[in-house]
């Protein structure tokens, strides 16, 4: 299935229904493991979905970038050792632990938990969750091309105009565009 994914593909569109299914999968994992935060990242470290308190949102965004970098680094290490790859990463601190598992080498499932949850249980249940997420990922990829052509109409031009406006360019924004921020710098 994943051999067919074009490496030059420039965007992946996750629909509302798929986001809902991902959210339900993460919530179930959180309830069953007692984790404090759970995230699904893409390979670039961008958060696709997450569960946990809003107060740590910025921390989680930075954590996502670092974990994606750590995972990509571990892939390079595996390549040097002529391994196929390292499927999981585990970081253990005094108070919190982080368990990361890849979903078909496209997404990363991240479980942040404290002493109330057990690593063994997290490993087993995360494995089950990655199987469900793999099914959703297959659907996302299957539907991507038709969604891209629908999505692209108009948004590219509006986005380029917005960027010009934000960076104080003279070109006027397109009708229908909304810019909720003041231009900068």
């Amino acid at each position: 299935m994943f051999d067919r994914l074009d490496p030059t593909l420039t965007s992946l569109i996750v629909s509302s229904e798929e986001s809902e299914a991902i959210g339900a999968c993460l919530k179930r994992l959180m309830d069953e493991t007692g984790a404090t935060h759970i995230m699904l990242l893409d390979r670039a470290g961008q958060i696709i979905s997450w569960q946990g308190g809003e107060s740590r949102m910025q921390e989680m965004m930075h954590l996502g970038a670092l974990l994606a970098g750590a995972y990509a680094t571990s892939r390079e290490m595996a390549r040097l050792l002529k391994e196929d790859g390292f499927r999981v990463l585990v970081q253990e601190g005094m108070r919190e632990k982080i368990f990361t598992e890849t979903v078909e080498d496209r997404w990363l499932l991240v479980v942040v938990f404290d002493h109330q949850a057990h690593l063994g249980l997290v490993k087993v249940l995360a494995k089950r969750a990655t199987q469900s997420l793999t099914g959703i990922l297959h659907l996302v990829i299957q539907n991507n091309e038709s969604r891209r052509s629908q999505f692209r109409g108009g948004i590219r031009k509006a986005a380029v105009d917005t960027i010009d406006l934000l960076f104080n360019d003279d070109s006027a924004p397109s009708p229908g565009q909304t810019t909720e921020k003041k231009p900068w710098p």
Partner: peptide, 23 residues
């Protein structure tokens, strides 16, 4: 040593927030 990372929120287009991660 590894990277610098800066999340950058560029604003909204057609109701979509454009967010770039600079590394």
């Amino acid at each position: 040593l590894f990277f610098d990372f800066l999340p950058l929120d560029l604003g909204k287009v057609h109701g979509f927030t454009i967010r770039f991660h600079l590394y």
